[in-house]
Write a protein that binds this DNA or RNA. Structure first.
Length: 745
DNA sequence: TATGTAACCATTTTT
DNA sequence: TGGTTACATA
């Protein structure tokens, strides 16, 4: 048994697996087999007689948790180790110990959208008229505070500038709203358990004893609240094993604190540190390029990844004319390879993007060329209006105080309840500390509401009462009843709109999903189903069994691997993202993001960019990413497929090398790796009104007035760079720009 | 109150 | 470019 667990491991891996008690930090480079190490380690602990219930393993996504569970099951059948994400752990602990925390165990978990609405309400409560403050920015400030375990009081004490003070006013109102609605937000799932572990010694030691061995994956992406939880669980039994890679920390914007991993040795004395730097995943060429890139991060401990893998094909930089060409070009290349090479399947390919907005062009191209694909965005299906509506019914059913859900569905389908009536209802409920649903029971006392609105609210109240009789039914049955009794099905069925029939089909699919979810474990309730959806990550919806190309964000790609990877829009402003450019730490995080993407590739890696990119309506000049310049020339080959290159190259595309492994050195002499040549001029009539020169003052319909600071390019690609008073610097194509000349030089 | 149209908005990454 | 929200109208 023990022999099986260790026989195929390297000495370093074996040491990580067999380390028994005491803190352990495993610095696991990309592709170094860390998932294998963690699962083996759990199996090893079990083989040493540790009880399954004494082990807690934390993963970054539910999908990863499920996979680990399966692998452990394969090694040690029947063991019931607790494996989940931090958030799912938090939710479960909070429901279990609800009474000690003065919580109602039926609390609702509010997602991003709900939170934004609640923040908006809280802003009104606090009397902050949202001129400069958007609910989203306030929400993220509150989120940050909670991640640092700062409650409203301590946050207020620390708030010095106007912005912080404003948020400090909204924060308590937001918390009150949450409490009143018996709801928690994502951060609360970490915040409250962390505080409980700090302030409730009895609970802390109970949990510490329960989880004698704790393992945390992706430790570089934990935040302070998560750190506090890990800490609290490992005081009496300091058997904490964390696995991570500082080079793959990509969630700093979400509050993750890279210091958690950097300071581990200091925080956990007598800890053992092991490094896994042998990569089993990628070709040398890919590793060489990725390593060279990440080496540009200045705030980084130098670290080398080594491999015995073959050199492989060079990393290829593809240049396209525009975003459409890029999407179509990649789709065609993939299709051609799959059709010509029987060993390649669509599932071998992945396309990564920095921002979701880029998925549309890919979707269009893949549909057009009939290439099977899936866009990995788990929540998208549940975020459709019709599904959100149904889910809101369910949430209100389980938690009658959930006013956000109440407001969403009280008039869906329409029951003649308008804004005015709801204002009256709120005015009645608020001073009485009642929820909106509760207030509908006393509708006859609210004299301001009459007629259709009054009867509508009464009907709604009766509906919810009736539905409550079904909460114990199977998840799919509950949803079915909601769909029928609410009149939602009738509404969609009666609609003449094509779209509404599709919506009905989506809800049917939701029922199927619920049924399937329940079938895996008969004890699962509708409440479990809801929680599962809310805590789902994007990759959780990814079905790797399907033979299709996977399209996802770089963030979603973390932890995955594919034989062939395309990274698109490797352009300045996108990767690195423009919002990250000004700050070095954020720029370095972008570089890590690129590194994560590159190291997902096992055999082939393509980095593409376009000369022009359509963005929110207008076509902008795209500059290839600085990260491409940071790749060593001898590690990449370039392939220019843009229209401007077509003039010099006879074929649609022309490799500058023979391609493949044999030529992996031949292209260096050919001067490959150099940047695409300037665009050859194409004549066009010169509108005098578009004859810009530096120093001119122009006006843009959206960005207002600005000064021309640069003019360049030729013909159709003539561009003009303008520094706006308020909107910063932007570059436009002269031909397309909506500019009005205010003052000539 | 419900519906349609217009202006208007914002647009990273996500548990 | 497209989705959402505000407003006017029936």
């Amino acid at each position: 048994m023990e022999h099986d667990l260790l026989s195929d491991l390297t000495p370093a891996q074996r040491e990580a697996v067999t380390h028994f008690e005491g803190p352990l930090l495993i610095l696991a480079g990309a592709g170094s087999g860390k998932t294998r190490v963690i699962t083996r380690r759990v199996a090893y602990l079990l083989s040493q007689g540790v009880r399954p219930s004494n082990i807690l393993a934390i993963t970054f996504t539910n999908k990863a948790a499920g996979e680990m569970r399966q692998r452990i099951e394969a090694l040690v059948p029947g063991s019931r180790v607790w494996i989940s994400t931090f958030h799912a752990l938090g939710a479960r602990l909070l429901r279990q110990y609800a009474d000690r925390l003065n919580l109602d165990p039926n609390f609702t978990i509010y997602d991003q959208t709900d939170r934004a609405r609640l923040v908006k309400m809280a802003m009104e409560d606090a009397g902050v008229d949202n001129g400069r403050f958007t609910p989203e920015t306030v929400q993220s400030a509150i989120s940050k505070a909670k991640n640092q375990l700062l409650g409203p009081e301590r946050y207020a004490a620390k708030a010095h500038d106007f912005y912080g003070q404003t948020v400090a006013q909204i924060y308590p109102a937001y918390e009150k709203r949450l409490r009143d609605a018996n709801a928690l937000d994502f951060d609360d799932l970490l915040y409250w358990p962390a505080l409980a572990l700090k302030h409730d010694p009895e609970l802390r030691s109970e949990l510490d004893a329960r989880f004698r061995f704790v393992l945390i994956d992706e430790y570089q992406d934990t935040n302070q609240a998560q750190y506090a939880i890990a800490r609290g669980l490992t005081v009496d039994h300091p058997n904490l094993c964390v696995v991570g890679d500082p080079d793959q920390s990509i969630y700093g914007w979400r509050g993750s604190d890279i210091r958690n991993i950097l300071d581990f040795e200091r925080d956990f004395p007598q800890s053992r540190v092991l490094t896994l730097n042998r990569n089993y995943r990628s070709t040398r060429a890919i590793l060489h390029a990725a390593s060279a890139l990440i080496a540009h991060n200045r705030h980084r401990k130098p670290k080398d990844l080594v491999t015995d893998n073959p050199e492989g094909a060079p990393v290829t930089v593809l240049t396209f004319e525009n975003g459409t060409d890029e999407a179509v070009g990649i789709a065609q290349r993939i299709k051609r390879v799959v059709e010509e090479n029987p060993a390649r399947h669509y599932r071998d390919f992945a396309v990564f993007m920095r921002i979701n907005a880029l998925s549309r062009s890919l979707e269009t191209a893949f549909v057009k060329h009939r290439i099977p694909f899936q866009i990995v965005k788990g929540l998208a299906f549940f975020e459709r209006k019709e599904n959100r509506d149904i889910l809101a019914y369910l949430r209100l059913l389980l938690n009658p105080r959930d006013d956000i859900s109440f407001l969403r569905i009280v008039n869906e389908p329409t029951r003649g309840i308008g804004k005015i009536s709801l204002e009256h209802l709120k005015a009645y409920a608020a001073p009485r500390e009642m929820s909106l649903l509760e207030a509908t029971s006393e509708i006859q006392r609210i004299t301001m509401i009459k007629g259709k609105a009054a009867s509508g609210l009464r009907d709604f109240n009766l509906l919810m009462r009736e539905l409550r009789g079904y909460v114990e039914s199977t998840p799919d049955e509950v949803i079915r009843q909601v769909l029928e009794l609410s009149g939602y099905r009738q509404m969609l069925k009666d609609s003449r709109e094509e779209e509404d029939q599709e919506r009905l089909a989506n809800i049917e699919e939701l029922i199927t999903a619920a049924k399937q979810y329940a079938s895996e474990d008969s004890s699962r309730t509708i409440s479990d189903f809801l929680e599962n959806i809310t805590l789902a990550s994007d990759v959780d919806g990814w079905d790797e069994r399907q033979d299709c190309v996977s399209i996802m964000t770089l963030h979603a790609a973390k932890g995955l691997e594919f034989p062939v990877v395309y990274m698109i829009a490797v352009e300045q402003g996108i990767l690195p993202h423009e919002r990250s450019l000004p700050r070095e730490d954020q720029l370095e995080e972008e570089r890590r993001l690129a590194f994560v993407g590159m190291t997902r590739a096992k055999e082939e890696l393509y980095l593409s960019h376009a000369r022009m990119r359509d963005f929110r309506g207008n076509t902008l000049y795209a500059i290839s990413s600085m990260f491409l310049d940071e790749l060593p020339r001898d590690a990449i080959q370039s392939l220019d497929l843009s229209a401007s290159a077509a003039g010099t190259l006879s074929a649609m595309e022309q490799w500058r090398t023979g391609g493949g492994e044999a030529a992996s050195h031949g292209w260096a002499e050919a001067g490959v790796g150099s940047r695409p040549a300037p665009i050859p001029p194409t004549r066009r009539s010169d509108g005098t009104d578009k004859d810009y020169a530096e120093g001119m003052i122009v006006r843009h319909e959206r960005y207002g007035e600005g000064r021309v600071i640069e003019v360049g390019g030729h013909g159709a690609l003539r561009k003009v760079k303008i520094r706006f008073r308020t909107a910063g610097e932007r570059t436009f194509l002269v031909e397309k720009a909506q500019l009005e000349i205010v003052k000539r030089g």
